[in-house]
């Protein structure tokens, strides 16, 4: 474990806490893409298949449980909770995310570290996570003004993988056997997708203005 990875995990955790805060405090999920949340739940469920068979550390197991439980809780809130589900922008959240799932699975069948059940699903979860934010970014552009908590949520979500890139660079130089090309390249793509969001987030912070993405 290095400081970059720990900071990345904490940033990821903060993004989830900010989203839970938004939903709990405002009893609303306006501006949040249910499709992106469903994709994240799928990412965690397919990445942490070794949750009960493999053990790395208490920290690793606890964080996996938190990520799985929180992503499922958010999907439940947006689908089932009688008050929250009413504020879901169903007619704006129309990204066909099934294509993202199919593309990631096909790529995982072609590009993997080892042709084994868990490795294929691990690669699938890495590819899917890289593009899972797309429905959310499209929804932000369509819904015009973005409330603060939603903006912070997307910012921390993008920042966490950027910290992981620093972690991979660090491990590349310190861990001689380290080879994680699938996660590295995928992480770079994932972080690049946030580039324009980061720009508009910075502008809104600098001008102390409402976050606004161009349509």
């Amino acid at each position: 474990m290095n400081i970059f990875r720990f900071a990345g995990d904490m940033t990821h955790l903060i993004s989830i806490l900010v989203l839970l805060l938004k939903i709990y405090a405002t009893k609303s999920c306006s501006g949040i893409s249910l499709k992106t949340q469903e994709l994240y739940a799928l990412v965690f469920l397919t990445r942490y298949l070794d949750l009960f068979t493999g053990f790395i550390s208490i920290y690793n197991t606890v964080m996996k449980l938190i990520f799985i439980a929180s992503s499922l809780a958010i999907v439940w809130c947006m689908r089932v909770h009688p008050i929250v589900r009413r504020s879901y922008d169903k007619d704006l959240d129309t990204f066909r995310h099934y294509f993202l799932v199919a593309a990631s699975f096909i790529l995982a069948l072609l590009l993997y570290e080892k042709f084994a059940f868990k490795e294929i699903f691990w690669a699938f979860s890495i590819y899917l996570e890289a593009i899972a934010i797309l429905p959310q970014l499209v929804l932000l552009q369509r819904s015009g003004n973005v409330d603060n908590l939603t903006g912070h949520y997307v910012f921390f979500l993008g920042a966490y993988r950027a910290l992981y890139i620093l972690n991979w660079i660090y491990r590349y130089f310190t861990d001689i056997h380290f080879s994680r090309w699938i996660a590295c390249v995928s992480g770079l793509v994932q972080t690049a997708l946030y580039a324009d969001f980061f720009y508009y987030y910075y502008i809104s912070w600098r001008n102390n203005a409402k976050l606004k993405l161009p349509a």
């Binding site: 990875r5 995990d9 070794d50 490795e119 992981y164 001689i176 380290f178």
Partner: peptide, 10 residues
């Protein structure tokens, strides 16, 4: 060292 299949990252 990092072995293939041992994913120690989240």
């Amino acid at each position: 060292g990092e072995m293939v299949g041992k994913h120690d990252e989240l």
